[in-house]
């Protein structure tokens, strides 16, 4: 076992949930550790930037990067790991699509910084001090890594070989991705380690979906006591199942929650949010414009809802950036 394959894991703009999905492999992680050498995993192992930089190009068999790209640091780490790795995996919704983090693209950096550092009720910052690229303290200059004005997915920054979708990905998919590498059964480049079809195909409630469905208004999950057996859409609850790639084993549905779309769209759909609009529009029961507006009002923040995970990789990618 002289040449154990080397594996690395890294996080960019991430909540840590994807790391959890690795930890959730439980005992299986030991098998991975047995079969492969984990050379870099900042969350769990003590290793430094230089340890990676010293490696030969392509020395790492596979790297899993989770989190969206928002800082200069993310870009340089992604590029470094790309260079050192034979295979690069986008791990989780943020790396795949920009994820929830990507919703930041509906706002400007200024709006975000003001909100986070000044206006949040739990923050006390009367002088409105914001993080600055450079801070001088005597002779010391402290530099912060650059904050981009857009959140990007990993794909938008480096060449990605495979994608493990999900927020977070089910541990089974992470395991499958790792085993793919270890057992040398790699699918065509660009593959997403999940189903090719949308979630409905494997949804346990699909039998209850009628052929003709129109709803007078949409309901939020707290507004009704919903039937645990019935198709959510059939109950007027917004479920993103039809516009979302399957492969999650319908875990949310099993837990009696509608799909929120974290696996992103299927191959033929370019923009999950726009397709969601098409989907929900088709269900609205009215022919009258005013009535339709009322139905639309029952969907609070449609942009945020439809693009919850995919804004950064959508057609618009975010709010229109005008020249100041």
């Amino acid at each position: 076992m002289a040449h154990k394959p080397k594996i690395a894991l890294y996080w960019c703009s991430s909540c840590g949930g994807c790391e959890e999905s690795v930890v959730d492999l439980a005992e299986d992680i030991l098998a991975v550790a047995e079969a492969a050498e984990i050379v870099f995993w900042p969350v769990a192992l003590d290793a430094k930037y230089d340890d990676v930089a010293r490696l030969d190009d392509g020395a790492i068999t596979a790297t899993l990067i989770n989190g969206a790209i928002r800082l200069d640091e993310h870009v340089s780490m992604a590029r470094l790991l790309r260079k050192k790795s034979r295979l690069l995996f986008a791990h989780g919704s943020c790396a795949h699509l920009g994820g929830v983090v990507g919703l930041g693209n509906f706002f400007t950096n200024e709006e975000i910084l003001n909100r986070v550092y000044c206006d949040v009720p739990t923050v006390n910052n009367p002088d409105r001090v914001l993080p600055r690229p450079e801070t001088r303290q005597g002779t010391t200059v402290l530099k912060l890594t650059g904050l981009h004005d857009m959140v990007r997915s990993l794909h938008q920054v480096v060449d990605v070989d495979y994608t493990i979708p999900g927020c977070p990905p089910p541990p089974a998919l992470v395991k499958e991705a790792v085993m793919m590498v270890l057992e040398d059964r790699l699918p065509p480049k660009g593959s997403i380690v999940a189903d090719t079809r949308a979630l409905c195909y494997t949804c346990p409630r699909k039998e209850t979906r009628p052929e003709m469905l129109e709803v007078p208004s949409f309901k939020r999950v707290y507004e009704i006591e919903w039937d645990p057996e019935q198709c959510f859409l059939n109950q007027g609850v917004v479920c993103m199942g039809p516009v979302t790639r399957g492969g999650c084993m319908a875990q949310c549905i099993q837990a009696n929650m509608p799909c929120r779309g974290c696996f992103g769209p299927v191959d033929n759909v370019r923009d999950q949010g726009a397709k969601s609009a098409s989907l929900l529009a088709s269900l609205m029961e009215s022919t009258d414009e005013e009535q339709l507006k009322k139905i639309v009002e029952t969907i609070p923040d449609p942009g945020g809802l439809f693009y919850r995970y995919s804004l950064a990789s959508s057609i618009m990618k975010g709010r229109v950036r005008r020249r100041p």
């Binding site: 609009a277 529009a281 088709s282 414009e289 339709l292 449609p302 618009m316 975010g318 709010r319 229109v320």
Partner: peptide
């Protein structure tokens, strides 16, 4: 009618995009 339904919903998304 389908066009009208979609249009009504797309309209509600434009603000978020600054359109």
């Amino acid at each position: 009618r389908q066009a009208l339904k979609r249009y009504t919903l797309i309209k509600s998304m434009l603000d978020a995009f600054g359109i």
